[in-house]
Simulated assay, not measured.
Amino acid sequence: MPEHDPEQELGPKFTSAFQSHADSTESPRALGLVAEARRRVRRRRQAVMSGAAAVLVVVAIGGVWNVLPGSSGSNSETASSAGDSGGKVTSGGAVRTQEAVPTQPPFAPTGCPAAHPILKAPATNAVPAGTGLDVATPVSGLLACRYDLKGSSLLGQQQFSAAVAQQVVDAIKPLPEMNSALPVFKCAPQAAQPSEAIVLRFTTAAGIREIWVEYTGCNTPGFFTGSHTYGLFAAPLKLFMTGPVRPSGSTYLDALKGW
């Protein structure tokens, strides 16, 4: 049997109450039924309006996942949005902007070559064509390489900043072709050969450019670029003859002061 619903009986009673009220407003029972009917009608109207308002709120904010607890819809949508924009999603669901990858700085010159052309050159002034430094060229770094010419080995190397590199070039640039204050030696051809030399490897916009420095033996000492010769003076030497690049002495260095 269907369950008895007391409110189903109110329909006829409401009709009777309104009819009685229309017939006689003085009946206490009729007045009570009318008041009860109006109260229930207002309650149902409020319930309907509240339900409709709740539906509008749900629709306005984009879905029922904001109402139901434990929903994972917001996290998944956030992760999808972050993936499309290149961001990363943390464990708490927050989006973290992907960090920019820093650009690679320009490479500094690598170490001195073990088999440098100066080791096999006929003379320390025989700088190969196209490799010598034009002293009017701006430089941005310097690697000084000291070689044992008789043992064909690297004795030491030293890296210098762009500022020091430019100072070395500026100190060489105004030098004459020969330092007349240095002694002139007369010796056998074998003894005239230099025992060591320094190669100055400058960093320029066009690549590595070199100046070869001779300060041993009996040949004319100086700075050689392949197209020009500069005399051996102390002003440039004291800027780069430091640490493992500094010789203990030589025939010309012993006669030169201030290096």
Results as ranks from 00 to 15, higher is better:
62 G>M: 08
233 F>H: 09
110 T>P: 08
78 T>R: 15
159 Q>W: 06
114 A>C: 06
66 N>Y: 15
48 V>D: 05
4 H>T: 07
116 H>I: 05
129 A>R: 14
47 A>H: 05
28 P>G: 08
33 L>V: 00
172 I>G: 01
241 M>Y: 05
254 D>H: 10
145 C>L: 12
120 K>R: 14
213 V>L: 04
89 V>C: 01
3 E>S: 13
98 Q>N: 13
62 G>T: 10
94 A>K: 12
106 P>I: 01
156 G>M: 03
141 G>M: 12
155 L>C: 07
52 A>N: 09
96 R>I: 11
130 G>H: 11
89 V>I: 11
151 G>I: 06
135 V>A: 04
144 A>F: 01
229 T>R: 15
132 G>K: 12
49 M>L: 10
192 A>N: 12
187 C>A: 14
176 P>E: 06
184 V>R: 15
54 A>H: 09
185 F>I: 01
258 G>D: 04
30 A>D: 06
24 S>V: 07
62 G>S: 11
208 I>E: 14
179 N>V: 08
126 A>P: 11
116 H>F: 09
133 L>K: 11
37 A>F: 05
154 L>N: 04
20 S>P: 02
120 K>C: 00
156 G>D: 01
15 T>L: 15
190 Q>R: 12
40 R>Y: 02
104 Q>S: 13
73 G>D: 14
61 I>N: 09
181 A>D: 08
176 P>V: 06
226 G>D: 01
199 V>C: 13
132 G>N: 07
106 P>D: 04
222 G>Y: 02
172 I>H: 01
57 V>M: 10
84 D>Y: 10
235 A>R: 14
209 R>S: 04
73 G>W: 07
34 V>T: 12
74 S>I: 12
113 P>Q: 04
158 Q>T: 05
42 R>D: 00
51 G>R: 14
221 P>S: 03
96 R>C: 07
221 P>V: 00
120 K>D: 04
237 L>D: 00
113 P>L: 06
104 Q>E: 15
64 V>S: 08
247 P>W: 02
88 K>F: 03
198 I>G: 09
57 V>E: 01
115 A>L: 13
200 L>F: 06
49 M>W: 09
232 L>Q: 02
248 S>Y: 06
86 G>S: 09
60 A>S: 12
219 N>D: 08
212 W>C: 08
32 G>F: 15
235 A>L: 06
35 A>C: 03
118 I>H: 03
225 T>C: 03
240 F>P: 00
244 P>E: 00
222 G>F: 01
141 G>W: 13
27 S>W: 01
188 A>G: 13
113 P>A: 07
158 Q>Y: 00
132 G>E: 03
103 T>D: 13
124 T>D: 07
235 A>C: 01
110 T>C: 12
176 P>K: 14
53 A>G: 14
250 S>W: 01
7 E>Y: 15
223 F>T: 05
160 F>E: 02
44 R>C: 00
205 A>F: 00
247 P>Y: 01
15 T>D: 07
183 P>I: 04
109 P>Y: 13
143 L>H: 10
24 S>W: 06
239 L>Q: 09
133 L>W: 09
233 F>L: 01
240 F>E: 02
113 P>K: 07
15 T>C: 13
166 Q>R: 12
189 P>M: 03
49 M>N: 13
138 P>K: 03
80 S>P: 03
